[in-house]
Design a protein around this nucleic acid. Structure first.
Length: 366
DNA sequence: AAAACGTGGGT
DNA sequence: TACCCAAGTTT
């Protein structure tokens, strides 16, 4: 191992085998202990690998950990998850974001039961056809859970490859090239460890900012480091501006203390989740007259002073909250007892609305 | 092919 | 405050 490195001249091309071996050696000493990771030598549970990979899509380890523990405790295997109602799964996913993942997770569990006799397929191609499993996740499960030679290319791997080979082409145009470079290094032996090693390298050493090149097992082979441009890679195309949108949320309280909620459409933004009814979220702030006309029912609406601000991926939202008393039924939706709001699958945005409404109404009446 | 799709933490 | 970004997938 060490001799391979010692013999490699600065600037000399490294063999892919040497790179893979060096990375695995590093991983054996520095592997992170994560809840979904099997102990060295132990057989991974495909269900746990799958569950963790779905949760980790575009999501940090720290954010995932409590959700992973809760899901595993409540639904210990794929059959248990398949038997759950979608709303239960959405409720448990509440706050994690990208709720299509929860809908696909549930659909995938049922597909495993119905199409695969309750067992995850080991082939990348078969995995790829399941809901919520794309190119990355299929490769990750095949490699980690089943020991198949597959190259899982996520954002970490793209960054590491862009730096190792000093690829200046911006993402996403560079994706095919980065994938090719990653596949070229993937070893026959220990593909699961290799996949996790590469992601650990990206997550802990080859970080987006201030990469710790001094600790990197590939530092001597890294072209970006040699050129002094590691931190500038990978290049990205400029991101589109994020517009602001505006809306009014209607906090509608009935005489029995219930508040009006609604179920959102099953697809699209916050699909299938529960919400406090709102106006449309539009580019211009609302006039009082326009908002009144958009209310779920006629009432003497009282605007609260605060504002709910929430950032989505592609726009920033500012919600005002209006409070009204419902004299009778006449609005469609769910009437939720205030002390049972925790039973509903409210996304973080709507929790903010609830907090503002409860805070200001209790203060105002005290 | 490009846009939609959440949230929280770091700077 | 504002912007970046994190183990991507779907349409």
């Amino acid at each position: 191992m060490a001799s391979i490195l010692a013999e490699a001249e600065p600037g000399a091309p490294w063999t892919t085998a040497a790179l893979a071996a060096r990375l695995l050696h590093w991983y054996d000493r520095h592997r992170r202990r994560l809840p979904w990771r099997a102990a060295p030598g132990a057989r991974p549970d495909p269900y746990r690998v799958w569950l963790s990979e779905i949760m980790l899509q575009q999501t940090t380890v720290a954010a995932v950990e409590p959700y992973y523990a809760a899901f595993l405790a409540r639904w210990p295997d794929v059959a248990a998850l398949a038997a759950a109602e979608l709303d239960e799964v959405l409720h448990a996913w509440q706050g994690l974001g990208y709720y299509a993942r929860a809908r696909n997770l549930h659909a995938c569990a049922r597909a495993i039961l119905e199409r695969h006799r309750g067992e995850f397929p080991a082939e990348e191609a078969a995995l790829r056809t399941l809901p919520g499993i794309g190119a990355y996740t299929a490769a990750a499960i095949a490699a980690i859970a089943f020991g198949r030679k597959a190259t899982a290319v996520d954002g970490n791997v793209e960054r590491v490859m862009a730096r190792l080979h000093a690829v200046a082409v911006p993402l996403p145009d560079a994706k095919p090239e980065l994938r090719r470079l990653a596949a070229q290094i993937t070893p026959e032996a220990r593909p699961g460890d290799y996949a996790q090693a590469l992601m650990d390298l990206g997550a802990t050493i080859c970080t987006p900012r201030k990469p710790r090149c001094a600790l990197c097992p590939w530092a001597a082979a890294c072209r970006a480091r040699r050129a002094g441009i590691a931190e500038a890679l990978p290049a990205r195309r400029p991101k589109p501006l994020r517009p602001h949108r505006y809306g009014i949320a209607f906090w509608t309280v009935r005489s029995d203390g219930c508040v009006l909620l609604r179920r959102r459409a099953r697809s699209g933004l916050l699909g299938g989740m529960v919400e406090v009814p709102t106006t449309e979220w539009r580019l211009e702030p609302w006039s009082e007259a326009a908002a009144s006309a958009a209310a779920p029912l006629a009432a003497a609406w009282r605007p609260l002073r605060g504002r709910v601000r929430h950032g989505f991926t592609h726009f920033a939202l500012e919600l005002a909250v209006w409070v009204g008393q419902a004299a009778e039924e006449g609005a469609e939706g769910l009437w939720a007892p205030l002390h049972r709001l925790g039973d509903y699958a409210l996304p973080t945005l709507m929790k903010k609305v609830v907090d503002l409404a409860l805070g200001e109404t209790s203060r105002g009446r005290a």
